[in-house]
């Protein structure tokens, strides 16, 4: 018998293979965010096609506002995979442009990139345990011609008989990590020795406390020095740090088993309004 982690890995590999084998590789892309989930996705793709190289391209939507360590990590990874980087020329600023920043630099940029390369199928590392509207999404999820998600009219999905077809008007988003939890991701990183960005581990860093109580990393020397780590990674002005002593994978796993909060408390964009992730997804956000 196999462990639950192996069962999850098998499910993900089966889905990746099925989608790729039934479609044209040129039309398929995997969204790469530099985060821990993306790192796991990369490993799953490697395993799915071993001993052959990964046949599809990866895509990073850059905003210009990621952490320095993330860019360094990305550039190392780019040596091993076929990575496209796309940045919306609109070049908005998260400090001054507010919620429009996420819409333009992430959602719009993603749509522009998919159109530019004519991708019809995009893999993503989203998990159902991340957020309530994601808990409702199919593993193979249909988007309309405007890249929008219609939660009330989803294609029936009977696992593992995935419907991997699209039409001229529709495209697909595929989520192999749907049934993984944050803890599963960490246990997998440990089991597979998957490299991740060092920001996930606790270290003394310069941070600034926001009115909501959240700590945000600062790039200058004025911030307060605190031992923190990041549970999720995104644009540094929009990503909250948590106070932590967890410097190793084992310590992170131990911390997660006792934490009182989910990882989404560290993401600023989820807290705009009630159901804000659902609204963003309907508009085409990953």
């Amino acid at each position: 018998m196999i462990t639950h982690l192996k069962q999850l890995e098998n499910e993900a590999i089966d889905l990746i293979r099925e989608v790729c084998c039934t479609n044209d590789f040129e039309k398929i892309v995997c969204f790469y965010s530099i985060g821990k989930d993306s790192s796991c996705m990369l490993r799953l793709f490697e395993k799915a096609f071993s001993p052959f190289p990964i046949p599809i391209r990866f895509l990073h939507i850059d905003t210009g506002w990621k952490f320095k360590e993330m860019y360094q990590f990305r550039d190392e990874i780019a040596k091993k995979i076929n990575l496209l980087v796309y940045k919306n020329p609109a070049n908005l600023n998260p400090f001054t442009d507010g919620t429009r920043y996420t819409d333009v630099m992430k959602t719009e940029a993603l749509k522009q990139a998919l159109a530019l390369y004519d991708f019809k199928i995009a893999f993503g590392g989203a998990r159902r345990d991340e957020e309530k509207s994601r808990a409702k999404e199919r593993m193979v999820s249909v988007r309309n011609e405007y890249q929008k998600w219609d939660p009330r009219n989803q294609n029936p999905e009977i696992v593992p008989l995935y419907n991997t077809y699209y039409t001229d008007k529709t495209s697909l988003r595929v989520f192999p990590l749907s049934n993984w939890t944050e803890l599963d991701i960490w246990e997998y990183i440990k089991e597979e020795s998957i490299p991740i960005v060092p920001l996930y581990f606790a270290k003394e860093r310069r941070v600034q406390q926001m009115p909501s109580g959240m700590y945000i990393a600062t790039e200058n020397e004025t911030g307060e020095l605190k031992k923190v780590r990041f549970r999720t990674l995104g644009c540094y002005p929009l990503t909250g740090a948590v106070e932590s002593e967890a410097e190793t994978i084992d310590e992170v796993i131990k911390e997660l088993k006792t934490t009182q909060y989910t990882e989404r408390i560290t993401r600023v964009i989820d807290y705009d309004t009630e159901g804000s992730m659902e609204k963003k997804k309907k508009d085409g956000y990953f």
Binding site: R128, K132, S133, A135, K136, P151, E274
Partner: peptide
């Protein structure tokens, strides 16, 4: 804790399957 879609919360009914672990 489960009904995640806005229309579900407003109408207080479950429209689609929610996956929980």
């Amino acid at each position: 804790l489960l009904d995640g879609l806005l229309s579900e919360r407003e109408q207080q009914i479950t429209i689609d399957i929610a996956h929980r672990y």
